[in-house]
Design a protein around this nucleic acid. Structure first.
Lengths: 339, 339
DNA sequence: CTGAAAGCGCTTACAG
DNA sequence: CTGAAAGCGCTTACAG
């Protein structure tokens, strides 16, 4: 009750000094303005006594800096974006920035709404895993000199980007299976125009061509429910009985695929080669354990945040960075030599 | 470049009217103030033309409402908090609120820092899965009439709370295993004073006593790495060879435990009863599939947000709510009748 | 029907 | 060494 929002004015009044003086002292600019140590101590003591914290919004409005970063991902509960969000938050926190986040669920309109909503807060910077169709709004922001880093997919010309080597990693996965004796390698991917998915597809197709293997691809819609995904993959497997290995373009497709494989008769699934793009905490527990292409989440996160902070601190935009951090394959039982 | 931050002032100047008029029109209060339709149209057209969006911070400062909610969880990348965060965000969005989130990683000091950081922004409300030792700061906020809802653990007297029936659900899990012939049921839990963990432990101990079964409990530290957790569980199993079933107090403990069990010799793990508190997307894929106690994430989320919005909209605090939403057990292969 | 003024809680030249 | 003033971009009584 009595704790009714104290302000810098109240403090100034109580201490009989100007509020500018209070502001300077609180912000550690007292020495450079040569304010007496006694006054400083007096103010700081009182500030502590009444537990005064400057109002962030007012500070932001006055300084033009919000100390907040907008993080826009596809799905915060996803096993790729969740950990990245956590790491980015922790890194940002050490530099005094907080995170405002939002999930687009891959929808263009949602993404645009979120971005515009965030822009009204004049955040200091944006980290975005872009949904399709937001190139224009991103360019608008760049034109306004808003610090912005894209990641994971769909780089935009002239904008900092951080991602992994999807195509090469997929090539490696294909060769890995081939080297271990698998000759009929299928690919289960999302029906998606996003660049990271296209690159994975491309890596697969190229390599199949090089190996003179007939490519077999299942395209699954992102929107359909898990049970539906599972059914579609099952259909795919049943109509392509010659397949002896499958590469999944994402870990949740792999999970759905494993459920599908479990439904098939045992003979089919014996000695079936499997590789997943993106690791998963449960891949080690399934038998056989699932071989996975792991994205280096920590390095992705640290590159993202450091590029953004560089832009925030030095708004003179130099050449945009395009950082590619290679994924590494973690071999497990599911891709052991075909016997 | 030319897009340099237009303001309500610029608009007023350009149109030769007062900025208060612009403000009223933008906020849809033009009719009630009987501003001519022509003026309204003129202003709105111009606003659209120059793509003007009111500065959120300035609005907040003037109105005292930030339209933002602080969400403080233990770990945003966790399979419990991630989905809850997503659902809360989506529900909040429909009411015009955005989310600022942060992860405490269970650390008291981190939690207090985060809360104080957020408080400086004078957010409209807070949703918190409390870390230990933040009761005082929570009470402080309540005294200041800050809308706040706690969830998942450690309710505080006089503060709205949403959680599940940990104790009863654990009792159910114990009885479930007992009914299926398991007679030596162990319990693997976190070394944690959090109420939800204590309640699960209590449910286990009580039921064991009732069943005249000797309780066997492993306490694992939250901080230790996954490999370490796995090792500790393995030790526990080896030193208690009579166990024929295990209940895990969280899903990630279960994942670590499954890895531990995999390392044991095959005879031990055959016909071993397993139940996990909290479901996991991979539990269906492991064989046998893992029986789990599922928390109703959607209902938890919707209750949390609606309690908070009620507080925000009607700051006259009435009796605090304490909502308990029962979990339901999903039976799978890992708890089939012992043969 | 519309405008001038005060205020939200800060910061930052500027002046002395 | 310290204070008075203007301003950040809004909203909201108040006045006419």
């Amino acid at each position: 009750m009595e704790n009714k929002k104290i302000s810098i004015n109240d403090i100034a009044k109580h201490l009989n000094i100007a509020k500018s003086t209070v502001s300077l002292i609180i912000n550690g600019k007292a020495d450079e303005r040569r304010i007496s140590k006694e006054l400083q101590a007096k103010v700081l003591d009182y500030v502590r006594e009444v537990r005064f914290y400057p109002h962030h919004l007012a500070q932001s409005l006055a300084t033009g800096r919000s100390s907040s970063i907008g993080l826009i991902v596809e799905d915060i509960s996803d096993s790729f974006f969740g950990p990245i969000a956590l790491m980015i938050e922790n890194l940002a926190k050490t530099k005094g920035y907080r995170i405002m986040y939002s999930s687009t669920l891959g929808d263009t309109n949602t993404a645009i709404e979120i971005i515009n909503f965030f822009r009204r807060s004049h955040l200091d910077g944006y980290i975005i895993a872009p949904a399709k169709g937001i190139e224009n709004i991103v360019k608008e922001m760049v034109d306004e000199h808003t610090p912005i880093v894209l990641f994971d997919r769909d780089p935009v010309d002239g904008v900092d980007f951080v991602g992994t080597n999807n195509r090469e990693a997929m090539t490696e996965a294909c060769m890995h299976l081939y080297d271990r004796g698998f000759r009929n390698i299928g690919f289960v991917t999302l029906e998606s125009a996003q660049s990271q998915m296209q690159d994975r597809l491309l890596g697969y197709k190229e390599t199949m061509e090089k190996l003179a293997i007939d490519p077999k691809v299942a395209y699954i819609s992102f929107e359909c429910k898990k049970a539906m995904k599972q059914q579609l993959i099952k259909d795919f497997l049943e109509s392509n009985p010659e397949l002896d290995a499958i590469i999944f373009a994402t870990n949740y497709l792999c999970l759905a695929g494993l459920a599908a494989i479990n439904e098939l008769n045992t003979s089919t699934k014996m000695n079936f080669g499997i590789v997943s793009f993106d690791d998963h905490e449960a891949f080690n527990l399934i038998s056989p354990a699932i071989t996975a292409i792991r994205q280096p989440l920590e390095e992705l996160s640290s590159n993202i945040i450091s590029l953004l902070l560089k832009q925030i601190e030095r708004p003179i935009r130099d050449n945009p960075s395009h950082v590619v951090i290679p994924s590494v394959m973690k071999e497990r039982g599911s891709s052991e030599r075909k016997t």
